[in-house]
Design a protein around this nucleic acid. Sequence first.
RNA 1: GGGCUCGUAGCUCAAUUGGUUAGAGCGCCGGACUGUCGAUCCGGAGGUUGCGGGUUCGAGCCCCGUCGAGCUCGCCA
Length: 589
Amino acid sequence: MLRTHKCGELTKNHNEQTVTVCGWVDSYRNHGNLIFIDLRDRYGLIQVVFDPSDNEAAHKLADTLRGEDVIQATGKVDLRRADLVNPKIASGEIEVRATDLNILNKAKLPPFTPTSGNVPNEELRLKYRYIDLRRPELQKALIMRHKLCQAVRNYFDAQDFVEVETPMLGKSTPEGARDYLVPSRVHPGAFYALPQSPQLYKQLLMVAGMDRYFQIARCFRDEDLRADRQPEFTQIDVEMSFVGQEDILTTIDGLVAHMVKSVRGTDIQLPLPRMTHAEALERYGNDKPDTRFGMELTDVGSIVKDSGFGVFKSCIENGGRVRGINAKGAADKYSRKNIDELTAFVGEYGAKGLAFFRVKEGKLDSPIAKFLDDDKQQALIQKMGGENGDLLFFVADQPKVTSAALASLRLRLGKELKLYDPMEMKPLWVLDFPLYGWDAEENRWSAEHHPFCNPNSEDLGYFETDPGKIRAQSYDLVCNGYECASGSVRVHDPVVQQKIFDFIGLKSEEAELKFGFLLNALRFGAPPHAGIALGLDRWVMLFLANDNIRDVIAFPKTQKASDLMTEAPSTVDAKQLRELHIKCDLPVE
RNA sequence: GGGCUCGUAGCUCAAUUGGUUAGAGCGCCGGACUGUCGAUCCGGAGGUUGCGGGUUCGAGCCCCGUCGAGCUCGCCA
């Protein structure tokens, strides 16, 4: 060991002890005859003092120290005089009077100073990620991530779950996200796919009788990225046999409570609230509601359908809806210009306009208020729960557009008006998702969750009449507007599974080819089973109240899925390609 | 694939309507200094304004293209 103590662990209890510490030079203050170094490691800072009367050579060497140099210093821990205590750092009551200095690695001038407080642009941070990761904030995120994983493993282990590793090199399957492919050298022209999730393997583990499985599993999806999406991410993957939906919900309720307790030290009330998919869409406009604040969507179609405002009226006549939200007390906080910006904002979701009214002296104040008579104005104010000073927004459009536009507007206003505490966590279950959605592009029904999800037994009659009405035995766990877990009761009957493949237009030969192993397994004694997967990255984000997934991943990729540090992906040698029987057909400019 | 924002010194940013030699703070280099902790003081170096083209008497600023980063719609069972 090159050190006897960590920088951040020294306290006044170590007074008079001779210690050796190692770390990075965080800052230096050179007074000529007296040199102060703040030495940093993962655990904190300690001030090291070099006095020529302690050791002239060490003092002389300390004169050359600069930021981010890695050093080893030996000396006696000394209580600081009361007037010299630095309350800003944990070890501020003490310092190390160095009698020896060893420069372990003289650092080049770094492209940025990780602990200066001004954070450089992300491009630079990602290129020099190893320097960026010296920032205590990122170290905190990685440590929390580790703690969370530990809590997850403890929770499941205590309940007889077994963590099983499943293959990274698997089979490409239709449905779902685009696969990352890995060419096979020994099977010319054939490819493995990296897992989008261990979905099929975990079901096969149930057939194998593992009964209770979990895995902290890396998953890969080759789709366009977002602030909360990386091409490779981590799932807490769970599957159980001989259980139904209720058992999964209860098990995961317990897991969430355990995670919150482990990370935050606080208790969360169980069971977690539940809401149907239909209710979420109606009240919040999306299937992942942020329930930390109100401002729920209100339908005012019945009031405006025969009003003098043509936009509202014709919208209703054409099968659309008029819905609105009430930004309490925001009438003076949004200028005409701000509202124009909001109009453009909802335009991104297909809304052709954004009607707004300020509630003023008990009436509506707006360029379009004149189209609504007194009775309608009063009815609107009442329905929206309007009070003087409120700002009402309405979108008149096709139902889906009103949902999407108002859901996003609500989130934006909630954030801008600071309607919630960013540290608060409000998880809830969203249940009764539709099993199928109409895929206009492919002109067929397709599975909303995945094709292994069991239909709600009450809805089987809709297969022939109205497939969009079939509810799935699936469930999402939503927290603060993020989908952070998703699962379902699986099909364990090969006949039903075949029927579903038929229904989504997967020809039986193709189903046999792509999923034959699953259908086969279901024929060999498959227990009823159900499962779920939690997005680990998103949970870490939630616990840190962070909205950027890259800040909770040690080595993340950019939006174009490249690694700025290693410069992956990259071209490879012609020899490698030949071995893989691959020729590149690059796009021509 | 579409929309929007950004790119100026090592870093964070500024630069009036398109107008002289592109500035500041931090950092860096040299010097001074025995109690600092965002040390202080004195001096200094540091720029192909991402790249390419265009408009103009004149471009960091306007236009077109391109590269990169971010946000987002589509996409993500």
